[in-house]
Amino acid sequence: MRVETVWLGRGGQGIVTATYIVANAAVIDGFYALANPEFGAERRGAPVKAFLTIDKSPIEDQEPVKTPDVVVIFDDKLIDTMRFAIDAVKPGGHVIVNTAKSPEEMKKIIGRNDVYLVLLDAVGIALKHVGLPVPNGPLAGAFSKVMGFPRLESIKTAFETQLGKAVEENFAATKEAYETALVVPPERVEQAAKPKGVISTTSAFLTGPYEIVGWPEVSKAGAVFPGSSLFYATGGWRLEKPVIDHSKCIMCRKCWMYCPDDAVVEAWKEVQGPRGRVFRMKVIDFDYQYCKGCAVCADVCPTGAIKMVREI
């Protein structure tokens, strides 16, 4: 028996910790496990992935998981970015998603009818018990529920060794997820069928739509040139987006001044006067291609014109 899993989330959500906890708990239960996170140069908020393989016999073939049995998604906003992983799940496998959306909606978004969907509001559960939006404990609980291992008590022991603090709180969240996670079975499973795709072994460190070329074509001395970062849209990191109420804005430009991503810009907006004349008005707008949703602009706004709204 071997279970190959891929865990997808963002830097700072505890993906690595989650795989360590489940691996540790599996080891306590007598399994062999390898938790193998991929580290890039990215920072908090950027998509990251980790591999976790659990087996009854020792694992020596430490290689990237290409067609996982289970994919765990820490953030339903990542589904589009991480679709390659969902497509690679073996038929009859599991997709565990942290989401507050309805099962019907999720089914549509995931777009596969030959895998188990496991849905839970992990952030909600974590906020309730731990007081922090860390979905790793609840997702470990959902994993245990659908796979039948590791045992809940082992997860608790793993919390003690891996976290060393807030064990009771995290375990309460794990337990609630174990009890409440919703499992939607597949409509039909053709056991012999192959997954739609495989996870490429090169995608982890490729952040941006850059063409992979051979050594004679890379730039000499590894030099890079201005303008190249514009292909790297960091808008996908965002959980909330800023919106502005122009009627409250006094054009103090504090938001522009403090934006670390150069995502606050001035734009011309056309407004119609009472007698039909069109005026061009200078207003603040956001470049959602790059905005990471840090909310600094909303915090520094002296009139409360900028609000953060949760994105779909």
Binding site: G40, A41, T202, F205, L206, I212, V213, G214, W215, P216, V218, K220, A221, G222, A223, V224, F225, P226
Partner: peptide
Amino acid sequence: AQLGAVGTPEWYWEVRWQ
């Protein structure tokens, strides 16, 4: 031109191979 970029596992070998 800018020198000394991070060479991730996707790029390091090719740059160095030159």
